[in-house]
Design a protein around this nucleic acid. Structure first.
Length: 206
DNA sequence: AACGTGTTCAACCGCGCTGTA
DNA sequence: GTACAGCGCGGTTGAACACGT
């Protein structure tokens, strides 16, 4: 198992300095993203590669958007969370410039319902249990949980199945992740699911 | 001004998944 | 089939900051 406990005695931890940021930025500009095993050595940083990657992805990457989430972004987060559950990277993938860490933090601090301990700060107060569609299990055969469920999410899934561009999930040889990736790559399909009709929206958020 | 409490968010950590030998 | 290494993700933590008394 790789991790943080390699040479813990010499690896620096905690907040990054401006100098470290500069070193990391220059290194990534030279090496490109993805060669994280080389980054600490090439950059001359006394940090583990996971820390370098995290710093780059969550803070230094050029297109990262800072500041408050817009109403549209919040709206999309709520919808996607309803659909996907805590799959922050997928949710963040639909929000240009936002990181999974940002989305997760925003959800946990602003949107999460924490059994009454924390009060909601906005209009999206929601008490219904979230039913999240997970990538793996999707074989939507007759009699499956999803198809028999009375939850509104059924409409979303059926909408997905109605799309001719998507693989037929009941007979497809593709696994659930493939189906899911296909869905995420298909803008129209995704919009139909992530942005349900007005009636559905009212049902969810009223 | 000083202190206590609550909130935010950057960073850490552990684990699962995937590719490779 | 198995072991190992590397990557990426989600949950959690804790320092810094904001706010109230």
């Amino acid at each position: 198992m790789e991790g943080y406990n390699v040479n813990l005695s010499v690896m620096r931890k905690g907040a990054w300095t401006r100098e470290e940021d500069d070193l990391l930025r220059r290194c990534i500009e030279t090496l490109g993203e993805g060669k994280w095993h080389q980054v600490p050595y090439k950059a001359g940083l006394n940090r583990c590669r996971k820390s370098c990657r995290l710093r780059w992805l969550n803070y230094l990457k050029p297109n990262i958007k800072r500041g408050d989430f817009t109403e549209d972004e919040v709206d999309l987060i709520v919808r996607l969370h309803k659909l996907l559950g805590n799959r922050w990277s997928l949710i963040a993938g639909r929000l240009p410039g936002r990181t999974s860490n940002d989305v997760k933090n925003y959800w946990n601090t602003q949107l999460r319902i924490d059994s009454g301990v924390k009060t909601m700060k906005n209009k999206f107060q929601e008490t219904r249990k979230t039913i999240a569609i997970r990538p793996q299990p999707q074989k939507f055969i007759q009699g499956s949980y999803y198809l028999n469920s009375k939850e509104p999410i059924l409409d979303h899934i059926q909408a997905a199945e109605d799309l001719s561009t998507l693989p037929q999930t009941s007979s497809s040889t593709k696994n659930g992740n493939d189906w899911w990736e296909t869905l995420l790559e298909d803008e129209d399909a995704f919009e139909r699911i992530a942005c349900p009709s007005l009636e559905l929206e009212e049902e969810h958020f009223s």
